[in-house]
Nucleic acid binder design. Structure first.
Lengths: 161, 161
DNA sequence: ATGGATAGTTGAAAATGTCAACGATTTATT
DNA sequence: AATAAATCGTTGACATTTTCAACTATCCAT
């Protein structure tokens, strides 16, 4: 992603090229904020030997919704084979367990262990902090608004804020 | 990215897992909307033998700002070597030209040709349409608001809307 | 009971990302 | 002015990630 860290203290300088029309392009804006967000997130999660992806899987495993790997793949927009690798690693570390689906024994539900839940709590705080840094330029209300708009774009308006 | 196309007609179903707390996570929301956006954009741009990346470079080359490759790399959050490959291809197709920088002859500025500008115009319309589809669930005002918030998160508030 | 679909898994191939080195040039130091 | 240090584009090597086709086990429809 090639995000310069600038000594970890200063937020990115406003660039000469912001004037270009691409700064109005949604795809570009998403790509860029996603890139910086990923760097910050992965940096914050490294302390817990997690990355954005494994963190996401752990959250879903801890949600109480007993998701199957397929559901995770669909939801996270990942290939099923990538879920396998992620769950493999988390399971090896004792953070989640696989169990055969109750109605469908082909499927495997992934559930966080107590250990996984504990780690997730700590990691969640770090991730929250990273998110706050990414949204540093926004007021609290604006941050909430941004997230609400992203959710609405993804799933429509039929969801609680 | 693994976004199911669902016959190209129906927008993604609301997923069981939206209820999970990860739906409140900025990183996840950005990743997901960026993923679907990329698919739509690349699909729209394929007609012109462009991808998101080459499209971005072409826009910058056409901006009149005479960016150097290094500036593009910084702005697009890409490694300089990736810019080389992108410009190589665009130049081979006669869409942009490299010129040595006026003050600094190490640097090379990239400028769109007339042919590049023409292609960009058509591609831009297709991209606009793709963007509109991605933001289908949002009212026009909300779309503008979303983009303004993304810009503000990236560069602060000192910019025109 | 058979056939066709689907879940997870594996492994290979393709695409992308990362990084160190190099020549040419610029900037800073003496 | 001479030397040293830094920067730009470029190349090539290496690692990671993405994509996809196969395979087994299981489910579902007829």
């Amino acid at each position: 992603m090639t995000i310069e860290t600038q000594g970890d203290q200063r937020t990115e300088q406003v660039h000469k090229l912001v004037a270009a029309s691409i700064s109005q392009d949604l795809g570009f804006l998403l790509a860029k904020l996603h890139a910086t967000g990923s760097v910050m997130n992965n940096r914050a999660l490294a302390e817990f030997d997690l990355k954005e992806r494994s963190y996401s899987v752990l959250i879903l495993a801890n949600s109480g919704l007993e998701p199957t790997q397929r559901e995770m793949a669909d939801f996270l927009s990942l290939d099923p084979s990538q879920i396998v690798a992620l769950v493999d690693e988390l399971e090896k570390r004792g953070l989640v367990v696989r169990a055969p689906g109750k109605q469908d024994r082909r499927a495997k539900t992934v559930t966080a262990t107590a250990k996984g839940g504990k780690l997730l709590q700590q990691a969640g705080e770090a991730a929250q902090q990273a998110e706050a840094e990414v949204l540093g330029g926004l007021a609290a209300e604006e941050s909430a608004q941004l997230k609400a708009l992203l959710r609405k774009a993804l799933w429509g308006s039929g969801l609680a804020d």
